[in-house]
Design a protein around this nucleic acid. Structure first.
Lengths: 255, 255
DNA sequence: GCGATAATGTTAAAATTATAACATTTAGTG
DNA sequence: CACTAAATGTTATAATTTTAACATTATCGC
């Protein structure tokens, strides 16, 4: 590779780091080379910058603008998540303070929140926070700490305490595994504290899981099924769930 | 406007909410209309989605991919910021825990941090945090709280306490105004507490400001010039600064 | 300094995306 | 049911971006 080439890429990366897009023509001018050289820099070296329709953008930005386009299968998967979140929406009321869990399950819900006049979202997930900043009508409280890339979320000693200080109306909790006997679990241990704190403090607790999570146990246990007031799931998982619950507490809503 | 058109846009917005891009062709397929209809939807209605080289992306995502391209003047301004940050880089050492202030001044520094083996960045700014997540070698600690869109940063009661608990080697502080007599100031009052806490706890305090900030006073005062160990600035501002400082403490570094 | 090689520039052609004009379908109304 | 108008589709054309090929310039070892 080439020292000057790397230098150009660093320069461009800086220019893009604050966000925004840079036209190839401007990038070329900025580096005082031809557009072709910039193109070659990008194709030759592996870089965080990608070229999108003649414009340079940061590729590995949090949830945003990765190069991968939604494939057809994702689009169909998406339908399931979408209807799940539509169902969740029915439980949300004007003025609510919502705890929104990490993961991708609840993301489709966020843009729907723009239809309310005023809401507050409490979260410890960066991708959730980023999506919420796009909504002018929603106040955002992000619970910070040490960042875990795997779950795009934060962890800290006093997160539980911070959550309990807030007046949370509804806790929207996602999970990676739901088992009738072994309870509700997730992948990462640092998620346990915030989830449990939210469950403990919220007035209403909703578990939002699609059918694929049923009968699955993940390393980090965080709640029993009975800890929830409502379980929002889709058709496939529901019958199995209902059969096992007996006269348990949660209301089961099927998307 | 049209109900079905709005419905399509909502659908697409959801599909994009989790981040990523959607090709016009896929968007058309997803909505079961022609590409032209999607194009018309986007041009007719005001929406958060924008079309970038045949791909749909969320326009108003945090720092990322707004439609505005860096204009030429920004590109030239950038040179100043870039050299400023290059100068700051000289003060950073392997293993450091850095406090990085909000604003756009220190953004160009972040991608440079990839050259170190291990660092920790502490910040209360969302745009800084997002940029840092792209660096695998940098641990990120985000100080959360209520989000302020104007400064892309968070505020909370116990942020000062949280900062003082951390072992911060170097505090990199930016400012909107620097005046010899009236001290160092910024626009937003909620930035005062974290800035002051970082100045109080850090082993070394660096003020990073370009020439345009000198002789300017902004509403929120947060420090005296003498509170800093180093002032990193560019040529134009430096002479004025040096003349006034007399036998004050800070070392002045000119980019 | 010379020659070899890499880096960059230039140009033309191919592919893609954007725009505009007009055709067709759909929904609503009297 | 025909008429109107809006919505959508289709097609051709213009503009832009991508790719490829080859020309030119810089760099490095000898």
């Amino acid at each position: 590779m080439n020292g000057r080439s790397a230098l150009r890429l660093a320069k461009l990366q800086d220019a893009l780091a604050s966000g925004g897009t840079l036209h190839l023509r401007d990038a070329a001018e900025l580096c005082d080379v031809s557009e072709m050289t910039i193109r070659r820099d990008l194709t030759t070296h592996t870089t965080a910058i990608s070229l999108l329709g003649g414009r340079l953008v940061m590729a590995n930005y949090p949830g945003v603008t990765p190069i991968y386009d939604l494939t057809e299968q994702q689009a169909s998967h998406y339908q399931a998540k979408y209807s799940l979140c539509q169902r969740v929406l029915a439980f949300i009321e004007e003025g609510d303070t919502l705890f929104i869990d990490c993961g991708s399950t609840l993301i489709p819900l966020l843009s729907q929140l723009s239809h309310f006049r005023e809401l507050t979202v409490v979260t410890y997930a960066l991708n959730v926070a980023n999506a919420v900043t796009a909504l002018p009508n929603v106040r955002l409280v992000l619970l910070g700490g040490l960042f875990y890339a795997a779950s795009q979320s934060f962890a800290s000693d006093n997160m539980a305490a911070a959550i309990e200080r807030l007046g949370i109306n509804k806790a929207l909790i996602s999970a990676a595994g739901v088992d009738l006997e072994r309870g509700v679990s997730c992948f990462h241990f640092h998620e346990v504290a915030p989830k449990q704190a939210a469950i403990a403090t919220a007035m209403q607790r909703l578990l939002v899981v699609d059918a694929s999570k049923f009968g699955v146990v993940r390393p980090a246990y965080f709640a029993a099924l009975g800890d929830f007031d409502v379980i929002v799931t889709d058709e496939e998982g529901a019958p199995k769930l209902l059969r096992g619950l007996g006269n348990e507490v949660p209301e089961v809503t099927i998307a």
